[in-house]
Simulated scan of single mutants.
Amino acid sequence: MKKMILALTLAGSVLTLSACSAGSSTVAETKDGNISQQDLYNAMKTKIGPQALQQLIYEKILPKKYPVTDKELNAKVDQLKQQLGSNFPAAIAQYGYKNEDDLKKTMKIGMMEEKAAMKDVKVTDKELQDYYNNLKPEIRVRHILVSDENTANEVKQKLDAGGNFADLAKQYSKDTGSAANGGEIGWINKQTEGQLDPDFVKGAYTLTKPNEISAPVKSQFGYHIIQLEEIKPKKPFNEMKSEIEYDVKSSKLTSDSITKAMQRELKDANVKVSDKDLQAAINLNPQASQGSTPSGQ
Rank of each mutant, 00 (worst) to 15 (best):
S21I: 05
N87C: 03
I92L: 09
F200E: 01
M118Q: 06
L145W: 15
S257I: 03
K122C: 06
L128D: 00
S13R: 09
T9P: 12
Q191A: 01
G186N: 02
K98N: 02
K276C: 02
G186P: 10
L8M: 12
Y246V: 01
I185T: 05
T293N: 14
L135W: 03
S18K: 08
Q297N: 14
Q290L: 15
I109Y: 04
P236G: 03
E229T: 12
S289K: 15
W187P: 08
K31W: 09
G49D: 00
A161N: 10
A215L: 06
K98R: 02
S21V: 10
M1I: 03
N34A: 14
K136H: 14
E229H: 15
K98I: 01
K241E: 12
N34E: 11
L80G: 05
E239N: 13
E138P: 01
Q55H: 13
G194D: 08
A91P: 06
F88S: 02
Q54A: 03
L80P: 10
E29D: 13
C20K: 00
S25P: 05
N238E: 15
Y172A: 04
Q94N: 03
G162D: 10
L62G: 02
D78F: 04
K98T: 03
L207F: 02
A152R: 12
E184N: 09
E72L: 15
Y172N: 04
L80N: 10
L73I: 03
T206S: 10
G96E: 07
D101N: 13
I188F: 12
D199V: 00
K122S: 06
R142G: 15
Q157H: 14
V146Y: 15
T106H: 10
Y223E: 12
N150C: 01
A43D: 09
D130T: 02
N74W: 06
E113Q: 05
I92Y: 06
Q38R: 07
V217G: 10
A204E: 00
K249F: 06
D102E: 04
Q263H: 13
G163Y: 14
K272H: 03
S178N: 02
A288M: 15
E184W: 06
E59Q: 12
A52D: 00
M240S: 02
E154M: 08
L168N: 06
N87L: 12
V217E: 13
P236V: 01
L53S: 00
D101L: 06
N34G: 11
A22Y: 03
L196A: 06
A90V: 09
K272D: 10
A43R: 11
K136T: 12
L128T: 00
A152F: 11
D199A: 14
A179S: 14
M107E: 03
D32G: 05
A28F: 04
A117H: 09
N270W: 12
M118S: 05
A269F: 02
N285V: 00
N181H: 13
P294G: 08
A281S: 07
K235Y: 15
W187C: 08
